[in-house]
Design a protein around this nucleic acid. Structure first.
Length: 193
DNA sequence: CACCCGATTATCT
DNA sequence: GATAATCGGGTGT
């Protein structure tokens, strides 16, 4: 499967958030391979108060200001990691696309081990959940997602624009007027309606 | 060095 | 629907 090039990420963050739907996230650990189709995303831009980069560059958010197509990973609520693909135009300064949910396609038995959960529906239907399922931690901070390695993104299936739904972003207290959460309508692995 | 709080989740009622 | 769990980064003293 073809890996998305860096040029894919060098566009408006909101546009990239929509275009990432249907793409495939692949995680390799030794000879273990886990993968899933991206079914839910959110866009975060430098100028937006909800964006982690909004107040300026710090050690933790430095990746959002770095090269596009790399991973910005953060630890939240003492328990979970969340994964972003850095994506923005040169004018936007910084920004990323939070990946919120996957539809599992490969290595489901490994995901169940990392999640300590049986079944499939509760494996990757949330940003902290899929990161745990794919064993994504701080050590992958800054990973180049455009190179075949431990974590990268490939072309998946084509999603028509009429299959994309939007809503306010989840878990933030401001900028609710921006409908920058995108998901594949009727997909059963999104975090919520 | 103390305090605050968050792009979440599991586990209740 | 509401809430506790949990911890590291950022900020101010």
């Amino acid at each position: 499967m073809h890996i998305l090039p860096q040029s894919f990420y060098a566009h408006d963050t909101i546009t990239v958030a929509q275009k990432l739907l249907g793409k495939q996230l692949i995680r390799s650990i030794g000879n273990q391979v886990m993968a899933g189709i991206i079914v839910e995303t959110e866009a975060y831009i430098f100028t937006d108060p909800a964006c982690h980069a909004h107040k300026g560059k710090t050690f933790a958010n430095r990746a959002l200001f770095g090269p596009v197509g790399h991973a910005y990973i953060y630890f939240i609520y003492g328990n979970y990691y969340c994964v972003n693909a850095v994506a923005h135009t040169k004018e936007q300064v910084a920004g990323g696309v939070l990946i919120r949910a996957l539809e599992p396609t490969q290595g489901i038995e490994y995901m169940q081990q990392y999640r300590h959960q049986p079944g499939i529906k509760n494996l990757t239907n949330g940003p902290g959940k899929f990161a745990q399922a794919l064993h994504i931690t701080q050590e992958l901070y800054g990973t180049d997602l455009t190179k075949k390695g431990n974590l990268y993104i490939t072309q998946g299936k084509i999603i028509q624009s009429n299959q994309i739904c939007s809503s306010p972003r989840i878990g933030i207290s401001n900028a609710q007027e921006n409908l920058w959460r995108f998901y594949i309508c009727d997909n059963e692995f999104i975090a919520r309606k």
